[in-house]
Write a protein that binds this DNA or RNA. Structure first.
Lengths: 195, 195
DNA sequence: GTCTTTACTGTACAAATGTACACTAACAAT
DNA sequence: ATTGTTAGTGTACATTTGTACAGTAAAGAC
């Protein structure tokens, strides 16, 4: 029989299935997903992927992905003349959640509306990742509460007074004085180009 | 027996379990998780949660969360008085990875260098999420291989010929002719403001 | 009170599950 | 050629699974 320890391909199939269904099937259906002919073969694949750190068991005995399962490959940016070969995959990998979110319980996503931060590369429809109760320093992007609404601005200091500066010069600089109510500090941004 | 259709509490237990293990157990273990005494009771709870739109079945027959399963209650974060409810973002997916990445095995992160796409809100240091071997249509952001380097451009058609258009007008429009080598299509973008 | 409904229990059972074991084909090294 | 290793197959079996069905306790309606 074929001697191909192609666990990378098996892992890819599991990742795609899990991305679609947020769940891993039993050995029976998994046999078809992986393209094997026996459930015993499925068991061997799963045990190998556990030994590689991609899967683990729940206390209930079911297979479940580990953090490593969700890591995404990172392509090298400027690819040398060698070409698309090295462009495929490079060693580094990271999970987007782990990359952007440090304190999950204090972190929320806020949809962006309006174009006041367009010059800062923040578009309507983007979602900014906001860490609440984080210390804000001048120059930070912050979400402030102005008149009961969330507003995205850059925190700055003028004459010892905290002010909120929009990236779009068509909007005015806000000087809330000591009534500055910060919702949180922007630590990241995500954008989807689909649809 | 207690007449308490407290599916909210059951849902919370499932959410906690799933957040911890990224998987739902079988009826047997679920009996203990939900605090019930029979698997038949578990079945009734799950069917009710499916009718409410919180769960569904995989093609393999397993229970799995729906998008609604991951919605956050509005009172989740202590929001200052008078704040618009829409600020706290309901209906968010469990993870950013799940929100942005649909085909994990074909998806790669590419760091952005250079400022040719600055006017499209794509900064140096950002990372674009690229789906390889996806069909590209005019207007799509694409990563192309030009002279052995990855280049981020907008795909367009001029006189029936595919061209690559930078967002920054200081850069030229590329006309690779039929030697157009696409690395993939940009489906998302992430940016970290830390450090 | 007497119905009716509801949320669960307990039992039963065919079907599916996970795993152990022996077996086999393909490859590598000597 | 022989040997050893590897990645899978096929079979067998005890256990577990999901579900159907009858039964029961609690609450509301009348």
């Amino acid at each position: 029989m074929p001697r191909a320890p192609n666990d990378t391909a098996y892992l890819a199939k599991l990742q795609d299935y899990y991305a679609r269904w947020r769940s891993l099937p039993a050995y029976g259906p998994l046999r078809d997903v992986l393209g094997l002919a026996s459930r015993a073969g499925v068991a061997q694949v799963l045990h190998r992927l556990r030994d590689s750190g991609f899967l683990e068991r729940t206390p209930a005995g079911r297979w479940t992905p580990t953090a490593r399962f969700f890591e995404r490959p990172l392509a090298d940016a400027p690819v040398p003349a060698g070409l698309p070969v090295s462009a495929t995959d490079s060693g580094e990998a990271s999970s987007i959640d782990a990359y952007l979110i440090r304190h999950p319980s204090r972190t929320v996503l806020v949809p962006v509306t309006g174009d006041s931060m367009l010059d800062a590369g923040i578009h309507p429809g983007d979602r900014v990742i906001v860490e609440r109760d984080a210390p804000a320093r001048p120059g930070d992007l912050v979400v402030a509460v102005i008149d009961g609404e969330l507003t995205l601005k850059t925190l700055a200091v003028e004459n010892g007074e905290a002010v909120l500066r929009p990236a779009n010069p068509a909007y005015p600089v806000l000087r809330p004085g000591d009534r500055l109510d910060l919702f949180g500090v922007v630590v990241g941004l995500i954008r989807s180009y689909r649809r």
